[in-house]
Each structure stands twice: as structure tokens, then as C-alpha cells.
């Protein structure tokens, strides 16, 4: 069975500067992989390259075995890939319901089942669909991003610093929903995080990006925190 995501020797960057160099990483179906690293090491760029917002200058990107290198982002999203970016990740002017509806594939109208499923974790979703998303609190906005990403049961979830600026209880709930969705539908997750504790608590494996290269990777076991800390040390 092919990997849910296979990043095969990808080099990418902006202008003349290469932010990623020959990155190799794959995520098996049902696996959660955390990408860690300090600021400016290329974590966000990695997700943008996987989604096709940035062209890979070298290497291939495969999603569920299909080579998608060079295809536009919306084609990749159509392969049951959900992406939650870090910045400007919701449509502030649209309602909660409209934000969710945009994640539905064209032609699908019913999202009631998905909302009911996710409202178990994020109760506000069911009751506040008509609220403008920009008026949600920071934590609720992050929950909306997660809910929108999971609404259609994607096979691969790419999520960028979902815990940034969140209180511990919300972080815990986000961890719960990832674990529950994985148990229910075998979703594969590539998680970019600065919050090492959260990342290692939900991940099966981790990888550390440093200066655009994978500096370390391994299972998210008991020793992982210490190994990661060595890379992130002040």
C-alpha cells in the first residue's frame, strides 16, 4: 500500500533562496507525523510545497501514490487532502457555516452529519453557524480550522501550528479530535508544530527540520522529547 504522502527529495524556496533542500519524508495511512523545528527552518514552506502553493524545484510529491508534482493546489485538495494554514486560515467575513461549506466538494450539499460528528468535540459549531467567523475567539477560530479540515473525512490532513496562542484546555481538545478521527477513519496527519509537548502526544513519529533539511527523525517515544529538545535548545 502506498504512503498517504510521500515527499521525495523535495527542494523548494522563494526567489533564489532555497528554504528546503532535498527533504525526504513519508506518512503512512493512519500515521501521525509531527514536523518540529525552530522558526524559519522551513516547516511552513514544507506544507506549502506539499499543497502546491510553491513549486518543488527538485524532487516529487506523491499523494496516495499519485504523483501530484506540478499540479495546482485545488487538484491536490480534491484528492481528499485537507490543509489548515497558519496565517489567515479562515474567511473572517464569512459565517461559520459558510467557512465549513467551502470545504465540501462541489456538488455535495449536506454537511449535517459531519457537523454533528465534530460538534461532539466543538459544541459551538452546531449552534453558531450563522455567526461571522471573524468574531469568534482565537481558540474558536482554531477549532473552526480543525473542524473544516476534518468535515469531509480527508485521507490526509496537513496542519500548521494549530496550537499557537491557545490555552491548554483547547490544545487538549484538539489532540483528542485528531486521535478520535484517526481511530475512526484512519486519517494520515502531517503536523507542523512549535509546541513539542502537544506534537509528541499525538504523533507516532517526529522529524526535526533545521535550515531546510531533516536534521533528525524517529518514533515519538519516551525519549523523543529529550532528542527534540537538543535540536531546539536555546
Amino acid at each position: 500500500m502506498s504512503a498517504a504522502l510521500d515527499i521525495d527529495g523535495v527542494t523548494a524556496g522563494y526567489g533564489e533562496s532555497m528554504v528546503l533542500r532535498d527533504v525526504r519524508l513519508s506518512v503512512a495511512p493512519g500515521e501521525v507525523v509531527a514536523v518540529l523545528g525552530k522558526n524559519g527552518m522551513g516547516k511552513t514552506t514544507l506544507l506549502k510545497t506539499v499543497m502546491g502553493f510553491l513549486p518543488a524545484r527538485a524532487g516529487r510529491v506523491r499523494i496516495a501514490g499519485a504523483d501530484v508534482t506540478g499540479t495546482p493546489p485545488h487538484r491536490r485538495a480534491a484528492r481528499a487532502v485537507a490543509y489548515g494554514p497558519q496565517d489567515r486560515a479562515i474567511f473572517q467575513e464569512l459565517t461559520v457555516g459558510e467557512n465549513l461549506r467551502l470545504a465540501l466538494p462541489r456538488g455535495v450539499r449536506d454537511m449535517q452529519a459531519g457537523i454533528e460528528r465534530l460538534a461532539a468535540f466543538f459544541p459551538f459549531l452546531a449552534s453558531r453557524q450563522r455567526q461571522r467567523a471573524g468574531t469568534l475567539s482565537g481558540g474558536e477560530q482554531k477549532m473552526l480550522i480543525m473542524a473544516r479540515a476534518l468535515l469531509t473525512r480527508p485521507r490526509l490532513l496537513l496542519i500548521d501550528e494549530i496550537t499557537e496562542g491557545l490555552q491548554p484546555s483547547v490544545i487538549t481538545r484538539l489532540g483528542e479530535v485528531v486521535r478520535a478521527e484517526r481511530a475512526a477513519s484512519g486519517i494520515a496527519v502531517l503536523l507542523v508544530e512549535q509546541n513539542v509537548g502537544f506534537a509528541l502526544s499525538v504523533a507516532d513519529r517526529y522529524a526535526v527540520l533545521a535550515r531546510g533539511e531533516i536534521a533528525d527523525e524517529g518514533p515519538a517515544d519516551a525519549d523523543a522529547a529529550a532528542r527534540v529538545a537538543a535540536h531546539l535548545s536555546v
Binding site: H74, A77, R88, E93, R101, L102
Partner: peptide, 25 residues
């Protein structure tokens, strides 16, 4: 309409819309 929703999404944030599978072209 769905088209209108997509158009508004593209107006507000084209990249985010593309990431959700909307063909902005």
C-alpha cells in the same frame, strides 16, 4: 449559491480558497 460563495472566498483570500479545493481559475 455555491458559485457566489466560492467567488467571495476567492475575493477574500484566494490562496486559502485554493487550499480548500476551489478552482480559482
Amino acid at each position: 449559491t455555491r458559485l457566489g460563495l466560492e467567488a467571495r472566498a476567492v475575493i477574500m483570500n484566494e490562496e486559502l480558497a485554493q487550499g480548500l479545493g476551489i478552482d480559482s481559475t
